[in-house]
Design a protein around this nucleic acid. Structure first.
Lengths: 218, 218
DNA sequence: CTCGCGTTGGACCGATGGTCCAATCTGACG
DNA sequence: CGTCAGATTGGACCATCGGTCCAACGCGAG
């Protein structure tokens, strides 16, 4: 038997799925994936756990919804009217920047193909490929390839961005990565790759990949 | 105060990092990522938690080591002597098959660029690109692109393979995915993609992507 | 005014990863 | 052959997590 004395008064500003998703994004941006816990949410929204589960299926659902929010914002920015190739490059850049600002999205995208954020990216790409006159299974192959490339890059860059709040830390991270690699395998090829790692630019490299792809489908 | 009565006798067959990694792979293959818990390991190896932490830094370390084990086996199979293009295709296929057999590796690869398995893949690609006469930053761009594509595909296909122990389940999954997509966004482009989803072949699609990249590189 | 039902708060449960330390064994050395 | 220090092992312990459950609450329809 539990004696509940003086229960806290009911909140006046109604909870909603959207409010919860926004709070989740703030938590994720602040502390990364591990920062999103139902407990942290209850504290930030000053409510109880039941209230949250009433609006949201669980943590996985919430992560997917948060990622979708970010990706929606990124893909909506794309201007139409431009030619498909530039549109694809713009779209890719917009996604890259969104992932750079919210590193946890990268990891999340690579985890579950059923989620809305993935569909959103898929569709934006497919529309442009259609504009390029690519159809049938060629379109689905090209779309899948481009999407996979974006997801893979996302996950890799995310790990870097997570650690690079400022430029000095970023350099430290790249140096550590480079020496970890050469230390583990001191091959000429590895040393070569490591040396390029030190002064490489994620954004440029990402776009170089997009261009390779675009060249491959035309 | 703890009264320890009749402690279990010490094991005769020594524990080792390798033995633990092997047990971890078995657990992962059987129950997926969530199946790998320190407790499950202690039970399977009939030991205590301390013994495991003595050989292994933690669950993350173990996951990375397990993935490296699988990737090592896959990349070692690659025959040399063939021309770089076929070598890249062979290598990609070997990795794909390994991921198909151990779906959890796909998710793991997309999570952390410092891990040995990633370096291994990177290096195998870089060696072949060198053979193609690609050097300098072009090589690092191409290598990064190809590796990212592989990681992204890995994660996406992994989610499918996880659910497709047999062909019927696999079809169910694809159907569910297709209708989830069209239900959420009934656009012509989406319907089109969904229809190709139903009878698509992961392996073929993956190789189609590799070929697009190869074409873009040369 | 009242009363049903959509909300809400929080106690509770089982499980996890990691730490810690005492008990145990092994092999080197006297 | 004895002994003892260091490597190895077992498991109690802790904080924390996701998810379930239910009693209390109050808004709005009647």
């Amino acid at each position: 038997m539990t004696v509940t004395s003086a229960r806290a008064p009911r909140r006046r500003d109604a909870l909603s799925r959207q409010r919860i998703v926004e709070a989740a994004i703030e938590l994720l941006d602040a502390d990364g994936e591990s920062g999103l816990t139902v407990r942290a949410l209850t504290s930030r929204l000053s409510t109880g756990r039941g209230a949250i589960y009433h609006h949201v299926a669980g943590v996985d659902d919430l992560l997917a919804a948060a990622a979708d929010d970010v990706i929606r914002a990124a893909t909506e920015r794309t201007a139409d009217g431009t030619d498909p190739t530039t549109a694809i490059r713009d779209l890719s850049l917009a996604i890259f920047d969104a992932l750079d600002a919210h590193p946890w999205v990268g990891t999340q995208l690579a985890r579950e193909p059923l989620q809305p954020a993935v569909l959103r990216i898929w569709k934006s790409i497919a529309v442009q490929l259609q504009g390029l006159g690519i159809d049938g299974s060629a379109r689905s192959d090209a779309g899948a390839a481009l999407a996979s490339y974006i997801f893979g890059s996302a996950a890799q860059f995310a790990a870097g961005a997570r650690r690079s709040s400022d430029e000095a830390k970023r350099q430290n991270y790249l140096d550590a990565l480079a020496s970890a690699w050469t230390e583990r395998d001191d091959d000429q090829v590895v040393r070569d790759a490591a040396s390029h790692l030190r002064d490489h630019d994620d954004r440029k490299q990402f776009m170089a990949g997009i261009d390779i792809f675009l060249k491959g489908i035309t």
